[in-house]
Design a protein around this nucleic acid. Structure first.
Lengths: 208, 208
DNA sequence: CTAGCAACCTGAGTTCAGTTCAGTTTGACT
DNA sequence: AGTCAAACTGAACTGAACTCAGGTTGCTAG
């Protein structure tokens, strides 16, 4: 199950790329990116440090890949969840629920994404890193546009009062993703409760 | 003006501590903490790299100090803004407005705070770093309690419907601080407009 | 005035995690 | 059995954070 989504189409059968990504997600998510030694990931997978460079150009390239994959998954879920929903309020609710329908591994990935968003800002020196960064950045913009569209449609249908849809979309996204900063599985508040509270907040934010 | 708040009580007259903090805020805020070289800060201030260690134990110690100072300022502003406000809704509005009444330098500090929050999680090896980290963490918890109290009071007075006040406080805080992730002075939306939109969102989130 | 002393500063050297180099092993498929 | 690309390795390199062993500055006391 773990790493099922992490397999690229053109991978050899004895490739350890998925295992590296899974280990990196574990370490980066639990301990933090800067704090974890790249060599620790290698040890976890059972290879020498140098072998990592067969799969990733650098530690940052691995991180950017993890972030891009999560953005991609996240966006796919949004599209899937809102596709057939005509009612704007129900579409919004579906989108929020989709954002919280995540496995524990995906929670780690969301956390990693949150904590290292700053990496998507500046350009990267190396080729493959920059490619991943660009892809991730574009996904972020796509997601922002998705949410903006959801809002503009609701506004034009009269379901939501007219406001600055783009800024409001950023606010909704900010509210939702901020959860991954503090939420911990097994913590005081179960994710279902958090989800319901946030869903209500999102609806009240845009309606009325 | 810049650095006026950055002066500690027991500083010598030729201390460059404030200048270092100001330069570090500029670099860390504009370019990012990891990206900026510690030596660049030294050059900006006009001293050798080694002189930095007269004032800060490490690059991280400087960063943690910046974060702690901003948390302190931020909390003081909250207390000041809500002190005399009896009406819960007005208190909430005042708190949000206070959160957005910031100078450009303070915007940078909020951004730094946001982007490096993860640093407050794990314990630090060195003494002074760990002291700053503890102080910052406690301020975060204080701020969370302040907002939670604002909500519980509003709920017990019947101004807000009863919900999980702590989780709701985290949601409000998450929404507000998420702005510093994307907001840029001179960007498409002026801060006043952002502030008004967020203020409305916060009120709608907790009322109704 | 000048002696002492703490604050302030420096160039040279160390450390350590990330990375590169120069090859060697593995195993699928002729 | 030989070939080739994928997968891997130990040893060496790099660069930015940091340490060391002192040197300079300027206030204060005598």
């Amino acid at each position: 199950m773990t790493g099922a989504r992490l397999v690229e189409p053109d991978e050899g059968p004895r490739s350890k790329r998925g295992a590296i990504l899974a280990a990196a997600i574990e370490y980066f998510g639990e301990t933090g990116y800067e704090t974890t030694k790249w060599s620790a990931v290698a040890k976890q997978v059972g290879i020498g440090q140098t072998a990592l460079y067969h799969y990733f150009e650098s530690k940052a390239h691995c991180l950017l890949t993890i972030m891009r994959l999560e953005l991609q998954r996240s966006r796919d879920e949004f599209v899937e969840a809102t596709r057939d929903e005509k009612d704007p309020v129900e579409a919004l609710r579906a989108a929020v629920r989709a954002a919280f329908a995540v496995s524990e591994h995906e929670i780690l990935q969301m956390r990693i994404l949150q904590n290292n968003m700053v990496l998507l800002a500046g350009t990267r020196a190396s080729q493959r890193e920059e490619t991943e960064r660009r892809a991730a950045r574009e996904l972020v913009q796509l997601i922002e546009r998705d949410w903006t569209r959801l809002l503009t449609q609701g506004m034009s249908q009269g379901a939501f009062p007219v406001r600055d849809a783009h800024t409001l979309a950023l606010a909704l996204l900010g509210l939702i993703v901020s959860v991954w900063r503090w939420y911990r599985p097994g913590g005081p508040t179960p994710l279902d409760e958090v989800r319901d509270l946030i869903e209500g907040c999102c609806v009240r934010m845009v309606t009325e």
